Amino acid sequence: MAKKDYYQVLGIPKSAEEREIKKAYKRLAMKYHPDRNQGDKTAEGKFKEIKEAYEILINEEKRSAYDQYGHSAFENGQSSNTYSTFTSSADFSDIFGDVFGDIFGGNRTQRTKKGADLCYNMEILLEEAVKGTKKEIQIPTLQKCKICYGSGAKTGTKPRVCSTCHGKGQIHIRKGFFTVQQSCPTCHGKGSVITDPCNVCRGQGRIETYKILLVKIPPGVDTNDRIRLNNEGEAGINGAQSGDLYVQITVKKHPIFEREENNLYCEVPINFTMAALGGEIEVPTLDGRVKLKIPYETQSGKLFRIRGRGVKSVQNRNQGDLLCRVVVETPVNLNEQQKNLLRELGNSFNGFRGEKNSPRSKRFFDGVKRFFDDLTR
């Protein structure tokens, strides 16, 4: 079943600003939250849909990718919808933390922090970009510690509630008539203190490691396109959600073809005999060779279109064309017999301004003559 448009899910226009997105999300999330609709599977599915749409549209990079490629921008990796069960306190905290956290500084966001997004630069061949491929990549990353499961505490122990802020992660300091709220200096905003840290991650909850990922490159990608892999970035702090991995595509320069949007261009040299008399040549495509008929009296720079031999669009799957630009090549390394034949041919033209055989030259030099005649009047 096709996914609904994220803007329609939140009931906002595509030009909506951040404040409008947050407002729409808060209203819908409160309405369909499972804790308010116990046992209602429809409401639970609706809440997942709303949450997924919000997480994409509130993030500038993810929203840009969605606007450009739609849902296909997130085909690699798992879906943004990772909810399977719901707990009242955590989910309502998510709603108000996302919408009002920057104003009131809710303590939940102090305790956990989503992992950073990562970017991997990948260089691929034009053939791979056009046809699609799969690539294995190895990236350095911070992963959740498998010993303490991200808590940072030694196995069999738990972090204790901070005695300074009593688990709030923040303290209030009175300065004259004002009360200032700031992060707790003891737990640094976490709300808890690890007295017996994990021996593997040393209390950090994350460890430095490398991981190998298989990236699916869809057909039709181009330089500066990005492929998003959900939750493959750095692990979050204190067991929070991991960030995302963005694979930045760069297509190598091809020795024969140049790409412009979904069309491919190439230059094909022909000798002046074929240009004058016509003939048939073989031209390269990314799928093999095809025959191209050259009509007689073809001029240098003439563009021939071979339909359906370009790039298939990654957005609408329309197929581009191959455009071959013929270049009439001046012969070199001529022997005396060949030179004499050319002289004889040239003489038959009655000079290089011959009206019958070289109409373009005649028009040019006639124009030059009129130009200088006008200057001397």
Rank of each mutant, 00 (worst) to 15 (best):
K14G: 10
K14S: 14
S15C: 01
S15K: 15
E17S: 14
E18T: 07
R19C: 00
R19Y: 03
E20P: 02
I21D: 01
I21R: 02
K22H: 11
K23P: 00
Y25K: 01
Y25R: 00
Y25N: 02
Y25T: 00
R27W: 00
L28S: 03
L28N: 04
A29C: 05
M30S: 12
K31M: 01
K31L: 04
K31G: 00
P34H: 14
D35R: 08
D35M: 03
R36W: 06
R36D: 01
N37V: 04
Q38A: 09
Q38T: 09
Q38L: 14
G39T: 09
G39H: 11
D40A: 13
D40I: 11
D40H: 11
K41G: 06
K41V: 02
T42Y: 06
T42C: 02
A43Q: 07
A43T: 10
A43V: 03
E44K: 07
G45N: 13
G45M: 06
G45E: 12
K46Q: 08
K46Y: 02
K46W: 03
K46E: 00
F47P: 10
E49Q: 14
K51C: 02
E52N: 14
E52G: 11
A53V: 03
Y54F: 15
Y54T: 00
Y54Q: 06
E55I: 00
I56M: 08
I56F: 06
I56W: 02
L57R: 09
L57Q: 04
L57I: 00
L57K: 08
I58Y: 00
N59V: 08
N59E: 09
N59G: 10
K62A: 15
R63N: 05
S64Q: 10
A65L: 12
Y66I: 08
D67H: 11
D67V: 07
Q68A: 15
Y69P: 00
G70D: 02
A73H: 04
F74H: 04
F74L: 07
E75G: 04
N76C: 08
G77M: 04
Q78R: 13
Q78E: 01
S80L: 01
N81C: 05
N81W: 01
N81R: 14
T82V: 13
Y83W: 06
S84A: 06
T85N: 07
F86C: 03
T87R: 13
S88W: 12
S88Q: 12
S89V: 14
A90L: 06
A90V: 08
D91C: 02
D91R: 07
F92E: 09
F92T: 13
F92L: 14
I95R: 15
G97F: 12
G97W: 04
G97V: 05
D98N: 11
D98L: 12
F100L: 12
F100H: 07
D102P: 14
I103T: 07
F104I: 14
F104K: 07
G106D: 00
G106I: 03
N107V: 06
R108E: 01
T109H: 12
Q110V: 11
T112M: 06
K113L: 02
K114N: 06
G115H: 10
A116Q: 08
D117Y: 09
L118W: 09
N121H: 13
M122P: 00
L126N: 03
A129F: 01
